[in-house]
């Protein structure tokens, strides 16, 4: 049950991330066409595309961890023998969990600060900052979970297959 809900959340956010990509394209096209027809393009078209870049990156990042899409260099992991390689791979994944946990914790603090201070992002509009920064704890929190699957799970983050290549 928890597992299904979690997976729905992970893939749901990845879906939002993909929609953001499409939205960026649509918003640019609409504002250019409006401008050239002599209309005033809505300022929110421009601003929402800029915010879209943030949401896209953060909300999609945990899914990309699961897909092993975050590029890394296999230098040491390729040179080490089996057991040592597996140990190193899990240790690196654990370090990633630690980084994500720190950023989740600081991200929550940042959101709380933004709410407490009533911070706004001032571009075309006054947009509550916490609505942007909330993406950080959400993203890094889920990334921590995803990296921990490479610490404790059956699958490893590093292939080691590359042999001498990497």
């Amino acid at each position: 049950m928890i597992n299904t809900t979690y997976k729905a959340l992970l893939y749901g956010l990845a879906g939002v991330s993909g929609l953001m990509l499409v939205w960026i394209m649509v918003s640019v096209i609409v504002s250019v066409v409006m401008r050239n027809m002599g209309l005033q393009p809505f300022a929110w078209l421009f601003t929402s595309a800029e915010y879209g870049l943030l949401y896209m990156t953060m909300l999609g990042a945990p899914w990309l961890v699961r897909e092993k899409g975050h590029v890394h260099i296999e230098l040491l992991t390729a040179a080490l023998p089996g057991a040592a390689r597996r140990l190193l791979s899990r240790a690196v994944a654990a370090a990633c969990v630690l980084i994500c946990v720190i950023l989740t914790w600081k991200g929550i603090e940042l959101v709380m600060t933004n709410i407490k201070r009533g911070d706004f992002d001032t571009r075309a509009y006054y947009y509550p900052r916490w609505l942007l920064t909330i993406a950080f704890p959400l993203s890094f929190g889920l990334m921590a979970v995803e990296f921990s699957r490479f610490v404790f799970g059956r699958e490893l983050m590093h292939s080691g297959e590359a042999g001498i290549h990497e």
Partner: peptide, 17 residues
């Protein structure tokens, strides 16, 4: 961190922290 195989983005974040 890059040499031990940490994803590049995470290596930057760790160095930043």
């Amino acid at each position: 961190l890059m040499a031990i195989g940490m994803p590049i983005a995470l290596a930057f974040l760790a160095a930043n922290i």
